[in-house]
Amino acid sequence: MAAHAEEPQGAAVVADGFGLKGPRGWAFREVGFRADPGALVAIEGPSGSGRTCLLLALTGRMKPHEGHAEVAGHRLPRHMGAVRRISALGPVPGVSDLDPAFTVDEHLRERALLQRRFDGSLRSLLRPPGERAADARTRIQEALKAAGLDPATLPKAGRTSVRDLERLEALRLSVALALIGRPRLLALDDTDLKLSDTDRAAGWSLLRSIADAGTTVLAVCSEAPEGALRVTTASRTTGTTGGDATDAAVPDAADESDAGTAQDTAEERTGEAPAQDTAQKPGTEETGTEDRGGDAPGDPDAAAAGKNAAKRKTAGKNAAEDTAEAGDGDADTIEEGAADALAETGRA
């Protein structure tokens, strides 16, 4: 019974007149749709049409400028922090990239440690090291199973570097890392990019299985799969196409607006322009490089994470430095900065 209670329950997502504007125009506008808990939502449209900005806004990582959205009853933009706590990012280029130098095992151990470090209660941090290690192993095993990734089948098993993974394997690893936090909402960018027809089908099958297990999935793609709730950012008209598909309108000017979108949102949120060097490997979540400072004394996982931290040579990848510069111990702040820098470079 206790194990069942810990299973993630999907978050309902509702958007009404949702829009985000930068200094050069609207990234997206008048987006409206309703997704039930455990739904598979495909955000469809060409590159540059505001898909990534919409994904980040719906997960509380970019601040919208008109309309509103609700995720599990948390209203955006008022409760962005609450939405970030129940959502997790899979692969989002420029925000939650995998480190090509890390091995699969290193990524998994690091994410489990960071999950405990930032999202665990004080009581959980004071548990004996053996209990914490057992909990980390359980989370990792559950996440790998849900993502359909068996490290034993990789060329060097868990010691395989990310740079040596196939595109579908890297997608599965990113999803597994996100699922370690047992989120209610999973968000992915460029889901079908550079995938063969066979791998694309396997990727959508994976996301359907996660949605069927109870976690709501938001996936950016160039072409939505059959049966998904389709939200498109490439049309001015809003309507329903084919059963459960919903088109959410975005003006054509969005293609020209993306370069400044997040800089504007960052200035409104923090009062100053976002740092240029925060676009690399933001935090937990949720994304994968917050604090490498370790954990409670005597924790073998903390020692492993300390070794992993030595591999980070730049400020963007050193989460401890990022957190200090931001003046906030919350990994979400780092992730927001990366989202801001992403849109500032002109990618939506």
Rank of each mutant, 00 (worst) to 15 (best):
P8V: 13
P8G: 09
P8H: 10
Q9A: 15
Q9M: 04
Q9C: 03
G10C: 10
A11L: 14
A11E: 12
A12W: 09
A12L: 06
A12C: 05
A12D: 14
V13I: 13
V14Q: 07
A15P: 05
D16K: 13
D16H: 13
D16S: 15
G17T: 00
F18N: 02
K21Y: 03
K21A: 11
K21N: 03
P23D: 15
R24V: 00
R24I: 04
G25N: 01
G25H: 05
W26V: 00
A27W: 00
F28C: 02
E30N: 12
F33I: 01
R34A: 15
A35T: 06
A35L: 06
D36N: 03
P37I: 04
P37R: 10
V41G: 03
V41W: 07
A42V: 08
A42W: 11
A42E: 02
I43W: 02
I43L: 14
E44K: 12
P46S: 08
P46E: 15
S47D: 06
S47M: 00
S49G: 10
S49W: 01
R51C: 09
T52H: 07
L54E: 02
L55I: 06
L55K: 12
L56W: 06
L56I: 07
A57R: 04
A57N: 04
T59F: 08
G60S: 10
G60A: 10
R61A: 08
R61S: 06
R61K: 14
M62T: 08
K63H: 06
E66M: 08
H68E: 15
V71A: 11
R75G: 05
R75C: 09
L76F: 13
L76C: 13
P77F: 08
R78C: 05
M80A: 15
A82F: 07
A82P: 06
V83I: 12
V83S: 12
V83R: 08
V83G: 10
R84V: 09
R84D: 13
R85W: 11
R85C: 08
R85I: 00
R85N: 14
R85Q: 15
